[in-house]
Every structure is written in structure tokens, then in C-alpha cells.
Amino acid sequence: MSVPAFEIRNLRVLLGGKTILKELSFSLEEGESLCIIGPNGAGKSTLLKAMLRLLPIHGGRIFFEGQDIQKLSRRDLARQLAYVPQAGNMLIPYTVYAFVLMARYPYQNLLAPLSDKDHVIVHQSLEQCEMEHFAERPLASLSGGERQKVFIAAALAQCPRVLFLDEATTFLDYRHEGEVLALIRKLRDEEGVAVVSVTHDLNQGLHEYERVLALKDGRRIFFGPPQELMNCEMLTSIYDSPFRLLSDPEGGKEVVIPGKVTQ
């Protein structure tokens, strides 16, 4: 178990001729969850997609459990890594159940099409996300928060070791955000699924994850445990915008507040 779960070495990614990620390196231990933060255009989503091999890379290497992901088949990758995009404005013309069932694709082949086991796993995934009552509803008829939970259920049906979330809570209201975060926490703590997440919510990033990676202009400015990022100068230099830290009188945790003190 000495092999890190993820190892990224000198990663370079270009999009449309522009360098988005520059000589990026870091590694994650088995079971460690990562939060990727940084200003708009820093390359957060690009990194997430590169780690899932959804984008071609132009330099460096990405290893998952010691294996170069460029050399793994999509099927093998899909059995270990699952992707949860922002569900908000995606038009998916299926019912919830049909959509989640499609996530069993990497376990099927011509000789072994859908089995009872696949249906059992789909039911379990929907149950975990508390979406089993929505099974026969068209996805398009769900609210943003409900849809996001269905997307997570679908990713779970892939039975992954690592779950990748791309701003999964950005456009959700407080209740749905809370539900989605609780769900992610449960998966991590009870199911042992590691999470790699892109977020703009610093308080989420600084409290829920073992590791934080801060990107700016495609470069790594910080990588380490979130406690070390808890200082205003660091955050200000990442975002070019002032921050304050406040101690939550009830939980005792430090909370990040954007902006200056206003009169």
C-alpha cells in the first residue's frame, strides 16, 4: 500500500493552443480526499478532466495506483473513477432509472448484458442518495438539487474507488447543498470512496477534505492539509481579493469570509 492512489508528475495540458496546466505535480495517498480551489480560469476543471482522461495531456504523466491512466482502457478506468459534472443545465432525455442504469455500462459486454445484479446496484445507489421515489420520473422534470443527487447516484452505480465532483454544489440552494455535502461525507466515511472535488466554496474545501490544491494560472500555489491554508495572506494572494478569518463561536472552527470590513 505504499503506492500513492494518484500521482501527477509535471502535468501539462493545452486547450486550443493555450497552456492551461503548467508542470503540475502532486500525489494523493490511498483514501485521501482532495479539494481543488482557485480563481476562475485557473485550470481546476481541466485538471479534473485530465485525471479522468477526458482530455488529452501534452506533457507529464498521471498514475492511478501505479498505472499510467493513458494506458488503461476506458472500461477499466470507469470501474475505478466516476465523474459527477454540474447537473444544472444538462439536458438528459431519460428517466432517472434509465439514466442510472447506463452507469453499469463498464460492467457489461456482448456476452454479459444487464443482469439482476446491475438492477440491485442501481436500486442501492438511488436509495443511498434518497432518490428511489424519483426512479420513474424524467430527469428533465427534476429540480437542480434533485438532478445533482441523481448524477451522484449514477456515479455511485459505477462502484468507483474515487468520485470526481466538478462544482457539484455551486448552483444549489442551502438545503440541497447541505444534503449533497452530507451524502458525499457519508460515501467517504462509510463506503471508503475517496473524493476529488472542484469548488468555489472555501469553507467547504477547508473543512471537508484531507488535502487542498490551490491553482492559479495553471500552476500549483499550494498543496497540503487545509489547516496550512488558513491564513489571509495566502488566500488573498490566490484570489487577488481580501479575506478575513472568523472563529465560529459554536463549532470553534475558523470560517473564511470574503471581502474587507465594511462600515
Binding site: 478532466k49 479522468l52 482522461r53 477526458l54 482502457s73 476506458r74 472500461r75 478506468l77 470507469a78 470501474r79 473513477l81 466516476a82 465523474y83 459534472p85 444538462m90 438528459i92 432525455p93 431519460y94 434509465a98 439514466f99 447506463m102 452507469a103 455500462y105 463498464p106 457489461q108 456482448l110 459505477q158
Partner: peptide, 23 residues
């Protein structure tokens, strides 16, 4: 006929289709 599931996945968009394991 053999690609029915794949055509389903195509309607999810390239990224989701790939992340589900489709070549």
C-alpha cells in the same frame, strides 16, 4: 442493434459517455 447502449450514452454528451467507460 449491438450498439443500443452506446447510442444511449452518446445522448449524455462526450464527457459523460467517456467517463462511463465508452470508447
Amino acid at each position: 442493434f449491438l450498439l443500443r447502449q452506446e447510442m444511449n450514452l452518446l445522448l449524455l454528451g462526450d464527457d459523460l459517455a467517456r467517463s462511463r467507460g465508452m470508447e
